[in-house]
């Protein structure tokens, strides 16, 4: 995936069953963000793979004061890339119990 300067990682083991999963997001390269990044640290949150939309979560982060409005796209894309990867992995994982 394209390097957005924002890292999103799993914050728990993915058991492949839960629709809600814990993620952790932090800024690796503040230069990739348009606004002046507030150096808050890593943001841990829960993402629902079925019902949540990455761009909506990014907007909530902006409204919570973590990022500026101009960075909502890059944050949303970072979350979307990670979520796509999680879904892709799940599709490839065959349940041992069938």
């Amino acid at each position: 995936a394209e390097d957005t300067g924002v890292r999103v990682e799993l914050n728990e083991e993915d058991d492949g069953k839960k629709s809600s999963i814990a993620l952790k997001l932090w800024v690796e390269d503040a230069k990739k963000l348009k606004g002046k990044y507030k150096d808050t640290g890593a943001i841990e949150f829960t993402f629902d793979l079925v019902n949540d939309i990455p761009e909506v979560v990014a907007q909530e982060m902006v409204e919570s004061g973590f990022f500026l409005d101009s960075d909502v796209k890059v944050v949303g894309k970072s979350i979307r890339d990670r979520v796509s990867l999680i879904k892709w992995r799940r599709e490839r994982t065959v349940s041992p119990t069938g």
Partner: peptide
């Protein structure tokens, strides 16, 4: 620990924790 919690009006909870040093890009 240096964690803080922000709850958005939509109900989502954001927990702020220190970025793991080892996971930061080398400058």
């Amino acid at each position: 620990s240096a964690t803080a919690q922000v709850v958005h009006s939509a109900g989502r909870r954001f927990i702020v924790s220190p970025v793991p040093e080892a996971r930061l890009k080398e400058q």
